[in-house]
Amino acid sequence: MNATQAEALARYSHRAIDQDNIGLYEGWLAHELRLNKCADCGKWHEPARAICPSCWSMNVAPAPVSGRGTVYLAILLRQGREEEGVTYPYPVALIELEDQPGLRYTSTVIDAAWEDIKPGTPVKLDWTERNRAPFPVFRIDQTRINEVKS
């Protein structure tokens, strides 16, 4: 195990981390959203797996996504377990990333009214701190707000 992996394990101690997904958390430390990508067929997948779900190549590795996407769907949690940085009501959004059709990442949208977190809303990756470690979130991308699609 290298030093970055050790740091990811230590700083994200509340996450279920193993050899197959640790690249995601190493990316978080570096403020990069890295999802698994297949070096043979070029397809991304999420959540991280040891094998490419499309072509079954074992040649997969984390790589940074653009961080641009649109809200595919959103829900508002009115209750849930206590977690640092989470206050209820709390929006959870499934973000469709522009890197590949159907590639989605689940997070929240910050600094936005619930009514504005609609399907099709353009968003971009941003970072916040949770438990003194970087955590990926999204915010509405005002520069692309006129491109709203569903």
């Binding site: 996450r15 595919y72 829900i75 849930g80 959870v92 499934l94 689940t106 399907p119």
Partner: peptide, 23 residues
């Protein structure tokens, strides 16, 4: 035992219902 930012198990149905009602 997932963080709040998930749409798994029970939450998945709320999420996909939101999408259904959008479509």
């Amino acid at each position: 035992d997932y963080p709040a930012e998930n749409v798994k198990n029970a939450t998945a149905y709320t999420a996909w219902c939101a999408r259904y009602m959008h479509e």
